[in-house]
Design a protein around this nucleic acid. Structure first.
Length: 882
RNA sequence: GCGGGUGUGGCGAAAUGGUAACCGCAGCAGACUCAAAAUUUGCCGAGCGCAAGCUCUUGUCGGUUCGAGUCCGACCACCCGCACCA
């Protein structure tokens, strides 16, 4: 690992090796930071400094870090190091989202225990992260699979349960009959289980749910106050929560069916009730089940929906199927009118009440269904400018504004007024009321898995569900499990689930489901604040000090689930007295992906970047065979496309600073970026260049001289302008701009170096150069901390100061004022020349100079100046006539 | 279908309504070298012109303004998210 051999052909350097040897420097400074505990903070600091909590989404320990991690953790580290230099106590922790399916798959496929696999991966990835030189407080590290962590999660669950924030209820789930487990929607592909390939069934199971819907109104309302979240994420969450206003009403059946005498529906269009032509109920609706019990054809139809309901073919074509039950419902307003009840595949049991009234004229789905089954289509909303006698609905439902007609007492009202009138009429008959409906559903957290946090309850035949007493926590996962057959190993375990009921002492059964791993990640951010407290989930003093997270950074893929669950969990923890804040993340930043070119051989096989040679004309050949290679699209790095770059190798070859610098320099962090070899090599050249510039200024220490020559003044101005510009860029997450300003400063130093070679008598230029190099290093420090330390150590031999402990430099305001400013001179908004004047020169002076400028004067010749616009220090514009 | 985002040189991009293209990558020409690498100097949106300079150019069309990449309106293209949500 500690390879200090001569650089390979990829590491440019002089004949005797590169001047700056990152292979020696990076471990040295990482050790120095660690020895001085630079990045450790107390649970409750006494420094009196303001706090700043920087957090990046913690990684799943898959085995190796990828470029997405490098980008994520570099972004966070820049913020953490910058804020620390700005005088904040910075909390910047790291841990592992360690439960989950891949560990179980490894166990099934390779026979390695999930714990062993996970902890080995963690060890490897921890080493890789440490080599990146991140300013992390490693004393707070934990993995969610440790009982020391999940025991507290079990306690939180018990508290939620006691507070009515958890319930056990029946729900329809995707069931894989071969693997014997519930599948998430994302795990169902083409109606089949993603692992087994078995046709997925809909099955009703008793599951644990967190009552996130209780918080739907406030989770939605609070989005408006979260001004440091991306607009896009807030909108996605708002859509997900999905508030809609409408009416809930019931229809009486003409004749009761198996004791059911009415059906409740939800609608957003009660104004269209007079356009009803049928009722449709979901295949999972109780009334459908009742019909199915006596009608074989209905039962067959329901079964078909169950097996095909989730297949992509049905969803994509949107084809609607129905079955006429023969039942009829009475219209609430039209005396004597009844309508048929259909079972329809497009009605969702999970939304609303699982039943709708169909108004084909004003709903596209209802119209498609009505046309297919020859049901009547009666328009009841007349579009503006349409004629009541001739208006008809063809293939497109009319969903726009208009006036009610064909609608008895609603006639003449516009859509909104008709809705209100219809709801009032329903309420008067006690047949319905106005309601707010939510798309958000309660969060089912039961998983039939081994590698997850056990749900701490016991099922007793006499007592029902009994929570595990808090003093018996944690409920530990047994280690001796087998993965030799499908299903949940916890269920197969010979002894684990057999326990005495804590309440009555009789033989009882432990819950064998474990939590969805999203539970683990819904509170880890708070746990970091007090990670060493073994007695309770959260220590209020520490959590109240550090929470909320000031800056959270991660991928957009978590825009909904993880972030919404965490927001809910924080509210639930507040309700149970564990935390004081409502919102966990005050600021959110979503980074773009890291992409790379892809390559394919002639036979279509994907090739790794290291298998090909790029030629200057942009084409590529296979290194071994010499055959041409197709250079494909630039797309997200993925193992299947083989367009991945291993960060470990990049750090080995170029150093961590190079990787960090390049990943920040290319483009704005919220946008997708392309990883390129030449870009990485360019970043490496810059690390060497900065160090070389430093070597040229060693020794010019001492107090600031009072007089400088022309070159010295210019360089000092460039230095202080850079301080101001880089500070501004870092504050705004414009890291690519910060990088550009630092390149400029390096270029200015190089210019001064040349000037020093020719103008030997320039006074104190050496001091100005040393100042510039020191500032360059310190401004670079959040991005490339190791080079920065090496340079400052070079400038101040024997000093024990670490850049990591130095305050952020301030720009000297006097040096931010230019000696002269260049004013653009326009005629009619077109640039015609420039003039140089002292800053803040009076308008009359500037305008006179501008008019005298040769090219401007030519343009003004023979013209009448109508208006002279002068913007101080920027521009003069002449408006002319004739 | 609904919602959102993005369109600027060969490429990634920059630009509080005020000189469009900073900075980097790639490229071209030169210096150094026996040579290469490394380093380094210069050029580098398009067109016209010997030059001074002129014209055009931020997806398209229009508007506001002394002045628009930026603000407003319409449209086009691409990308992303959600989606049989009643």
């Amino acid at each position: 690992m500690n390879d200090t051999s001569a650089p390979t052909e990829h590491t440019p350097g002089t004949a005797d090796g590169p001047r700056y040897d990152f292979r020696a420097a990076e471990p040295k400074w990482q050790a120095a930071w660690s020895e001085r505990a630079c990045f450790q903070v107390a649970d409750v600091p006494t420094s009196g400094k303001p706090k700043y909590y920087v957090l990046e989404m913690f990684p799943y320990p898959s085995g190796k870090i990828h470029m997405g991690h490098v980008r994520n953790y570099t972004l966070g580290d820049v913020v953490a190091r910058y804020k620390r230099a700005k005088g904040f106590d910075v909390l910047h922790p790291m841990g592992w989202d360690a439960f989950g399916l891949p560990a179980e798959n490894a166990a099934r496929e390779r026979g390695v225990h999930p714990a062993k696999w996970t902890y080995e991966n963690i060890a490897n990835m921890r080493g890789e992260l440490k080599r990146m030189g991140l300013s992390l407080d490693w004393t707070r590290e934990f993995a969610t699979c440790q009982p020391e962590y999940y025991q507290h999660q079990q306690k939180l669950f018990l508290d939620f349960l006691a507070s009515g924030l958890v319930e056990r209820k029946e729900s329809w789930v995707n069931w894989d009959p071969v693997d014997g487990t519930v599948l998430a929607n994302e795990q169902v592909i083409d109606g089949k289980g993603w692992r087994s390939g078995a046709l997925v069934e809909k099955k009703q199971l008793s599951q644990w749910f967190f009552s996130i819907t209780k918080y739907a109104p406030e989770l939605l309302a609070a989005l408006d106050t979260m001004d440091r979240w991306p607009e896009r994420v807030r909108l996605m969450q708002a859509n997900w929560i999905g508030r809609s206003e409408g009416a809930r009403l019931h229809f009486d059946l003409a004749a009761p069916e198996a004791g059911i005498d009415k059906v409740e529906v939800y609608t957003t269009r009660p104004d269209t009730l007079f356009g009803m032509s049928f009722m449709a109920i979901a295949p999972e609706h109780p009334l459908a089940a009742a019909v199915g019990a006596r009608d074989e054809k209905a039962a067959a139809f329901i079964a078909e929906c169950r097996s095909k309901g989730t297949s992509e073919a049905v969803i994509e074509t949107g084809e609607k199927h129905g079955y006429d039950t023969g039942l009829r419902v009475k219209h609430p307003f039209i005396e004597g009118a009844t309508f048929p009840v259909w079972i329809a595949n497009f009605v969702l049991m999970e939304y609303g009440t699982g039943a709708i009234f169909g108004c084909p004229a004003h709903d596209q789905r209802d119209l498609d269904f009505a046309r297919k089954y020859n049901l009547s289509v009666v328009p009841v909303v007349l579009p503006p400018d349409a004629d009541a006698a001739s208006f008809a609905v063809g293939k497109e439902a009319y969903v726009g504004p208009g006036v009610a007609y064909n609608s008895d007492f609603l006639n003449g009202l516009d859509v909104d007024a008709a809705k209100r009138a219809a709801i009032d009429a329903l309420a008067a008959k006690s047949q319905g009321l106005g309601v707010v409906n939510w798309r958000l559903r309660d969060w089912g957290v039961s998983r039939q898995r081994y590698w997850g946090c056990p749900i701490p309850v016991i099922h007793c035949e006499s007592c029902g569900v009994v929570p595990v007493p808090a003093d018996q926590l944690p409920v530990r996962l047994p280690e001796d499990v087998t993965f030799d057959r499908p299903g949940n190993p916890l269920d197969h375990h010979p002894t684990w689930k057999h326990v005495a009921c804590p309440s009555c002492g009789k033989a009882a059964r432990r819950e064998t489901d474990t939590f969805d791993t999203f539970v683990d990640s819904s509170w880890y951010f708070a746990r970091y604040c007090c990670a060493s407290d073994t007695t309770q989930p959260l220590a209020r003093a520490a959590v109240d000090h550090w929470m909320p997270v000031d800056q959270y950074i991660g991928g957009i893929e978590h825009a909904i689930l993880h972030l919404l669950y965490s927001r809910f969990f924080t509210r639930a923890m507040k309700a149970t007295g564990h935390i004081s804040v409502d919102e966990p993340f005050a600021g959110l930043f979503t980074q773009g992906m890291v992409n790379h070119e892809s390559y394919r051989a002639e036979d279509g096989a994907w090739l790794y970047p290291e298998e090909i040679d790029k030629r200057p004309d942009g084409t590529a050949v296979h290194k071994v065979t010499g055959l041409p290679v197709t250079v494909g699209r630039i797309e997200a790095m993925s193992k299947s496309k083989r367009n991945t770059i291993d960060p470990g190798e990049i750090i080995q070859r170029y150093g961590a600073d190079t990787a960090r610098w390049f990943i920040l320099s290319d483009n704005p962090p919220e946008r997708d970026m392309e990883w390129t070899e030449s870009g990485a090599a360019g970043a490496y050249r810059f690390t060497q260049r900065v160090y070389r510039l430093a070597e040229g200024v060693v020794g010019a220490n001492g107090p600031c001289p009072s007089e400088f020559g022309t070159d010295g003044r210019a360089l000092r101005r460039a230095t202080h302008k850079a301080i101001a510009a880089v500070t501004d860029a870092l504050e705004n997450f414009s890291f690519n701009v910060a990088v550009a300003r630092l390149y400029e400063l390096a270029n200015a130093i190089a210019d001064a170096e040349r000037a020093a070679g020719t103008a030997a008598n320039e006074p104190n230029l050496a001091w100005a150069r040393r100042e510039a190099v020191e500032m360059l290093a310190r401004l670079c420090a959040p991005m490339m901390p190791h080079v920065a330390e090496e340079i400052v150590a070079l400038l101040y031999p024997g000093s024990l100061n670490l850049v990591a402990d130095l305050p952020w430099p301030d720009a000297d305001p006097a040096l931010l004022i230019a000696e002269t400013v260049t004013i653009a001179v326009q005629i009619m908004g077109k640039l015609r020349g420039t003039v140089s004047v002292a800053p803040d020169s009076p308008a009359a002076t500037v305008i006179a100079l501008a008019e005298a400028e040769a090219n401007v004067a030519r343009g003004l010749e023979g013209k009448r100046i109508v208006k002279r616009v002068h913007v101080p220090n920027r521009i003069v514009n002449f408006v002319i006539a004739g």
